[in-house]
Every structure is written in C-alpha cells, then in structure tokens.
Amino acid sequence: MRRAFLTLGLALWLAVPVVSLQAAPPSVVEPAVPLAHSLEAMRSAVRSGGPGKDGIPAIDRPRFESPAEADGWLDDRDRVIGYYRNGEARAYPQRILVWHEIVNDVVGGEPIGVTYCPLTGSALGFRRGDSEFGVSGRLLNSNLVMYDRATDSEWPQLLGVAISGPLLGRGLEPRRLIWTTWEAWKARHPETRVLSRDTGYVRNYRRDPYGDYNPVRGYYRPDSRRLFPVMAEDDRLPAKAMVLAFRDARSAAAVGLPALREAGVMRLSLGERAYLVIHDPGLDTGWVFHAPEGRDIDREALRFGPDGVSGPGIEGLEPVPAFQVMWFAWAAFHPDTRLIRESQPP
C-alpha cells in the first residue's frame, strides 16, 4: 500500500496545474442539506490530502469513444460512473477518475461537474453553469474538497455546500450519477459514450493506486482502515460498507444495500416527509422519491429504463437525489443519520 501511494504521489507531482480565469460563478441554490457541523468547524477540520491545488488534474476537455472501443480495455465487472440526460448517456470509468476526480463535461446541453472521491467511494454530479471545478488537494472527513475556478470557493463533495470563499453557505444543484458496472451500464444504455483514456495526461489507467473493485481489495475492503481523521465516528456498519444515502434540509438517511436488495421496495419517513426507495436490480442501485402515505406501488409492474424507474404509482412522484458512499464518510457528515440495515416491507 505504501508503494502504491508513493507511485500516486510521483504521478501527481508531474501533473500540470490547470489555471482558468472565469467571470461567471457556478449555479448555486439555497442548500437543502442538514449541517451537523458549523461552517467554521468544518473549515477548521480541513486537512491536506498530500498533492497541492490542481495536483490532481481535473479533465476539462473530455474525449469519448464507443462501447465497442471501450470493450477493448474495460472488463465487464469494472466500475463506471454513469450519467444520463436528455437522451445522452455517458460512462466515466472509475479507473480513469481515480487519477482525476473531476470531469467538467456538457451532457444533454447542460454543463455538469462529474465528481468522484476514491477515499469515500462517492460519485456526485453538480450543475456547474459556465464555471468549472478543480481539485483543491484538501480533504474534509477524508472527502474531496473541490473549488470553483470563478470564485475559488471550496466545496466538500459530499455536502455540495461552500465552506469558504465568496459563495460561503451556498449550495450546488445536484445531478444523479450511477455507480455500477460497465456490463450493467452498457446493457441499460447501449448507445452510451465512454470517457477515453486520451485525457491529455500521462497516467497508468490499467491500475488503481488504492486497490481494486474487481475484485474488491486494498483500501476499498469494508474492514480496511481509513487514512484521514473525521469529525464523527459510527460503528453501526463497517467503515467502508457502501450505503445508498439521501437527505432533506433537516434529516439524513442511509440504506444498507443488502437490505435494499432483499426488500426491493422500502417506505420510510424522515421527520414529516415520507419516502419510497426502490431497488434497481439491473444497475444494483436505488431510486428515491417523495411519496405520500397510502400510495400503492405494484412491485411486479415496475419497469427500469434509461430515465430510471417507472410504473403504476410512480408517475408524478418527486425524485430525490441519492448516491452510494462509504458509511464512515456519510456518518461523519451526518452523525444523526437514520440507518436502515434490515429489510423493511413496503
């Protein structure tokens, strides 16, 4: 493991920093996430991750290739981060993003920041407007701290809320990314375009300096130790166990993936709001909706397509941004999170 991190450090030292002067800030909104820690406390808890600012270079001019071309170097079991919008599908291989963490892309006519933190196993998308995101080289709760190149404000990826800079306290608009396998993504989206290894940087995209997801080993093992301190700890699950996480302005929830697979459909409440969580067996992820009590869902009639899940009882429900993440990181940001570990009937 030590040799792997030395290799990563050398590669990052050779990176060329990206400098971009822009006038337009990213698209921001009033944040709809609970803040268990004050902005000041979070700023104080930020730590250096090793590489300096832009030492991990974001991909600003992504190139793409066909599924047939990607099949030449991607294994069906390799992890990809998928995104679909307005008829366009993208696949961002984890083995590329582990070296870059951010792709500034345009999908379906909308500029989006595709972000991935290998230390927390989290992939989140954000509407970026005319701005771009870069990697600050700093971490909060072991999680990627991004910065926007227009204002230099800093954003922990898992929160999407600025903890410093001119946009302090403002939130980013989330976009749903899918953490799945290459086999599953191309089956759902046979027309997808795939991020090319022709990134403009010299990296060994055949290997992951932290370990492997195919099979799971190294840093990604559920029982392996984390590398950086966190603001809160919770031992209800192994630290690196993956959960499906979502939240509203006051509360947060995490659903264990084994429980979701077993249940297929779950109902739960956060405060006064009721939610419906549906397992997608094709992508092995979950879709979350605001759902009033008493709404009938015919599990056998559910259909899974490019836009997610549909079927009787789903029409008109408000989708809720959700994503998969390592348990320790989610619990560090949301120590009061509700955890669903056992299968619950709909």
Rank of each mutant, 00 (worst) to 15 (best):
H37L: 14
R217F: 14
V288D: 06
R175T: 13
W155F: 10
A41C: 03
R261G: 07
R207Y: 09
N141G: 07
A332T: 06
V114I: 11
T192N: 10
P335K: 06
K240A: 07
E300C: 15
Q157K: 11
D284T: 13
V145K: 01
P57R: 08
M1P: 12
G109C: 10
V255R: 12
V325S: 07
V19P: 03
R197W: 13
L39Y: 10
L237S: 07
A123D: 05
S131E: 00
A36N: 12
V320G: 00
L158T: 11
T181K: 03
L97Q: 10
K240H: 08
G165Y: 03
P34C: 12
E191Q: 09
T115A: 01
R206Y: 14
I278L: 03
R176L: 06
A24K: 08
S27G: 10
G137I: 11
S20N: 03
Y84N: 12
L168D: 01
D75S: 05
L276A: 03
A45K: 01
E233D: 15
G200I: 08
V255K: 07
S122F: 04
G171D: 10
P222D: 08
G169W: 06
L177T: 01
P31C: 11
G286N: 04
M1T: 13
V325R: 04
G50A: 02
G108C: 12
G160P: 04
D307P: 03
G55N: 04
D234G: 10
G264D: 01
T337I: 15
F304C: 03
P118W: 02
E293W: 04
G87Y: 05
L119Y: 05
H37A: 10
V309Q: 03
E65N: 07
H334Y: 08
R95D: 07
Y205W: 06
I96G: 00
R188Q: 05
A241S: 15
W327H: 02
S122I: 08
E318S: 02
F5H: 13
G108S: 14
P238D: 05
R175H: 13
G305M: 14
Y116L: 06
W327L: 09
Y213W: 09
A36M: 00
T199D: 02
H290P: 05
L144M: 04
P312K: 11
S44E: 15
P281H: 05
G134Y: 05
I314K: 06
G72Q: 11
R138C: 12
L159V: 01
I112P: 06
L35Y: 10
A91K: 03
T115F: 00
L244V: 02
E30L: 11
P319S: 11
V216S: 05
Q94F: 12
L140K: 10
W73D: 09
A45E: 09
S20G: 01
G160Q: 01
I102C: 14
G165V: 01
W99G: 01
R267A: 00
T192P: 13
G134Q: 04
A274D: 08
Y116P: 01
S122T: 04
